[in-house]
């Protein structure tokens, strides 16, 4: 094993990753098209946080740090953590290292819900509610379809997820077709490509609440998730109530993915490649994998968003960046891991 040393020191590594994530969050406050001096950033932060001072629009550093960057950085970090946790959990539960959160129809459902809300002209909370609702509907439909096929195996679920996902994607296309190209289409397209540009504290609250419940829930269940990766009969013998636990775990995953999609649109690849990287670092055992994966996801998405908002003079949709970086990385991982002989049931 090439990464054996890191496997053995997984705990230390996880803490280092968290420290890196915190450091990157602080650094990101200073990044952006509008140049700000470190002292200015500190002044703004201390001023606002310690004395609860409001600001006016004419205090430009204040607006940039407190209103534009801080909520965005918080949101990106939490979304990255959530997506990577969701991905690592799904790969465990579906016993397939090549799946991501979009295999069970959640992402597509959530996207469709969000786009419908935009078409109906609803406000941000409406978009969040619709995305979450449709994400759940997507998952439930996939489950019902898998049951109708008379199979409860995870393969059947993944296949139904693909069917439901494609179905929803078609409606997504139709929704774009109906959209007013003057006012709605640019917004929809931009949202579908993923963007954290519209971060607000309200959205941060939504994502943070979801992550607190589902993310920490998954981290607490970290060791149990190992059992799902065993043969179904085998796993059933080892622990009690695995079936009920499976539902809870999947509900957590939906909550994480839907909350992310509803605030920032489609951001692909994070849930797929980050668990792989984390597995190379700390090994496949989920009580080590989940925390490392989550923090690594935060680091990755924050890096991508920093690039998205400061690389060019115009915002680059982050979904494009994660795809451009993610697909080749995944191709390499796929090629490397295939030679290691993962066994699929």
């Amino acid at each position: 094993m090439r990464f054996h040393w890191t496997h053995k020191h997984a705990g230390l590594l996880t803490l280092i990753l968290f420290a890196l994530l915190l450091a990157e969050m602080v650094l990101s406050l200073g990044l952006g098209r509008f140049r700000l001096h470190t002292t200015e950033i500190l002044r703004v932060l201390l001023h606002t946080r310690l004395w609860h001072a409001g600001g006016t629009f004419y205090d430009v550093p204040w607006v940039v740090v407190e209103i534009i960057r801080l909520p965005r950085i918080l949101m990106v970090t939490l979304c990255g953590v959530g997506l990577a946790l969701a991905g690592a959990t799904m790969q465990g539960v579906f016993r397939n290292p090549l799946v991501g959160p979009d295999v069970v129809g959640v992402s597509q459902g959530a996207s469709l819900g969000g786009v419908l809300a935009i078409l109906l002209g609803w406000q941000p909370m409406g978009i969040v509610a619709m995305a979450f609702g449709f994400g759940l509907v997507g998952l439930l439909l996939a489950f019902v379809l898998a049951r109708l096929a008379g199979r409860t195996s995870t393969l059947a679920l993944v296949l139904s997820g693909i069917i439901i996902g494609s179905f929803f994607s078609s409606f997504l296309g139709l929704a774009q077709y109906y959209a007013d190209p003057q006012t709605q289409l640019p917004g929809i397209t931009y949202w579908l490509l993923g963007s954290f540009a519209s971060a607000t504290y309200q959205k941060v609250t939504i994502v943070a609440a979801a992550t607190l419940l589902a993310g920490c829930g998954l981290l607490l269940l970290r060791w149990r998730i190992n059992l799902f990766s065993l043969n179904e009969t085998d796993a059933a013998m080892l622990g009690t109530n695995l079936e009920r636990l499976r539902w809870i775990v999947i509900a957590f995953v939906v909550l994480l993915v839907a909350s992310q999609v509803s605030v920032s649109g489609g951001v692909g690849w994070v849930g797929l490649i980050i668990p792989h990287l984390a597995r190379m670092l700390v090994g496949p055992e989920h009580s080590k994998l989940l925390p490392a994966s989550g923090f690594l996801g935060g680091i990755y998405l924050l890096t991508m968003d920093d690039l998205a908002r400061s690389m060019a003079s115009q915002e680059i949709p982050i979904g494009l960046l994660t795809g451009i970086v993610g697909a080749p990385v995944f191709a390499i991982l796929f090629w490397k891991t295939q030679s290691k002989g993962w066994i699929h049931d």
Binding site: L70, T77, L78, V204, T205, A208, C216
Partner: peptide
């Protein structure tokens, strides 16, 4: 981290 984010927002 989540609680901090919630408190901040």
């Amino acid at each position: 981290l989540c609680v901090a984010a919630i408190v901040v927002s």
